[in-house]
């Protein structure tokens, strides 16, 4: 198989991106940044899937990647809509202050 970037390197890139994304999602205060981090995680997973698909010559991975992109787009849209709604009433987008679901 010809792969001008070898598989382990791609996987490592995917792993690093995923880590950045997850840390960002857990640490950052701003809701927008959290949404972006989630997008980053999704993209990292996508990258890994595509790398394996290329390495194994299996087209199923490409199909999965398409689906993931569509889902990520939909989820980002919904998430942003929710955020806008919250911002309109609470005037803040800091996750530390949005705790209305508290018991």
């Amino acid at each position: 198989m010809s792969f001008f970037i070898s598989l382990p390197h791609t996987l490592a890139l995917g792993a690093i991106l995923f880590t950045i994304g997850i840390i960002g999602a857990l640490i950052r205060k701003n809701a927008l940044i959290v949404l972006m981090s989630i997008e980053l995680m999704l993209n990292a997973a996508n990258l890994t899937v595509l790398a394996f698909a290329r390495a194994r010559h299996d087209n199923t991975g490409h199909t999965l990647a398409f689906i993931v992109i569509a889902v990520a787009a939909a989820e980002a849209a919904v998430g942003l809509a929710v955020l806008v709604g919250i911002f309109r009433t609470r005037r803040t987008s800091s996750l530390d202050e949005i705790t209305m679901m508290k018991q």
């Binding site: 999602a25 640490i27 959290v34 996750l95 949005i98 705790t99 209305m100 508290k102 018991q103």
Partner: peptide
């Protein structure tokens, strides 16, 4: 158990992860 639900989304995500 209610104490776990403090409304902070990120706390929930940490636990999930």
């Amino acid at each position: 158990l209610r104490l776990l639900q403090n409304g902070h989304v990120q706390r929930y995500m940490v636990v999930t992860t």
